[in-house]
Simulated scan of single mutants.
Amino acid sequence: MARVPFIAIEGPIGVGKTSLAKKLANQLDFHLLKEIVEENPFLGKFYDDIAAWSFQTEMFFLCNRFKQLEDINKDYLNQKKPVIADYHILKNMIFAKRTLEADKYDKYEKIYHILTEDMPEPNIMIYLTASLDTILKRIEMRNREVEKNIKASYLSQLISDYEIYMNQFEAMHPHIPVIRINGDETDFVQYQEDLKQITDLVEKHLDAFASK
């Protein structure tokens, strides 16, 4: 685990990870690490035909996230500069397991473990959840061209996949606290009080980390 604060935010598409990461980075004065999404040249094709374009899409994300984390580790964490990211590289396995055929998944999993073996772990994980209705509304509001063909059935399954994976993550990484936030009940974009409650909770965990 990195010995400098490193927070990662995870959750399904459209749940508000980047919005929360930006606000917490500003509140805590942390460097903000944003994942590359719309720059993926395969993403639009992926949402049109998942089976045909899943391997190219997942490999692009894996390689870019690996490079981002490698740079963050060198330029920030190793320099004792705290970081908050709007993703964790573990999400690659959530998506790959859902979208890749068995033979391609096996190859992908091997590459994933080779690349991530020495990657820094977060000190704190924030897990955002929300219902399908809430996520669909937020995706519609942000109006990204590449997301216009996302199927509700895919998002529904993704919500379930995330819940399973995060439960496994907590069991396998008891040293990393997971802060769960219900996006149906909390609107940290519109309501400052909701943001303050989240910030206070994160700061308590940071204080506990610092005292170790």
Results as ranks from 00 to 15, higher is better:
I89S: 09
A51C: 02
R144N: 07
A130Q: 08
F30C: 04
K22A: 10
Y108D: 03
I181C: 11
Y154I: 06
K22N: 11
D103L: 10
Q190H: 11
I9M: 11
L32R: 12
V83G: 05
L158Q: 14
E117L: 11
L100V: 00
E70W: 05
S211G: 02
K81Y: 05
K91I: 02
A96M: 06
D29A: 06
N73A: 08
S153P: 01
E140T: 15
E10V: 07
E170N: 10
Y154D: 07
K34G: 08
F42G: 01
I36P: 05
V83K: 10
I159T: 08
K151G: 09
T186W: 04
M119N: 12
D49I: 00
N26Q: 13
L128G: 00
M93N: 13
T134H: 07
V146P: 06
V146T: 13
I179Y: 01
A96P: 02
E170W: 05
P41W: 06
T99F: 12
D103M: 08
M119I: 12
K34Q: 14
P5E: 06
Q68K: 13
K34F: 03
M59Q: 05
E140Y: 12
L24G: 06
M172F: 11
Q27S: 15
Y165M: 10
P82D: 01
H31Y: 14
H173L: 08
V37D: 09
D29L: 05
I176N: 02
S19V: 12
Q197Y: 09
E38Y: 03
I159Q: 09
P122F: 01
V4W: 01
L155Q: 11
L195Q: 12
N78H: 10
K81P: 01
K107I: 13
Y47N: 09
G183F: 04
K80Y: 14
L77C: 07
A102E: 15
T186P: 08
L90S: 09
F42A: 05
I124T: 02
L128T: 01
L195V: 09
Y108P: 04
Q27P: 04
R180N: 08
G14R: 05
D48T: 14
K74S: 07
K22D: 03
L128W: 00
R65K: 07
Y127S: 00
D49Q: 01
S131T: 15
E117N: 13
R138H: 01
I114V: 15
L155P: 04
D200A: 14
T99R: 10
V4E: 03
G16L: 09
M59R: 08
G14H: 05
E145V: 14
F60R: 04
M172E: 14
L201K: 14
P41I: 06
C63E: 13
I181N: 09
H113Q: 04
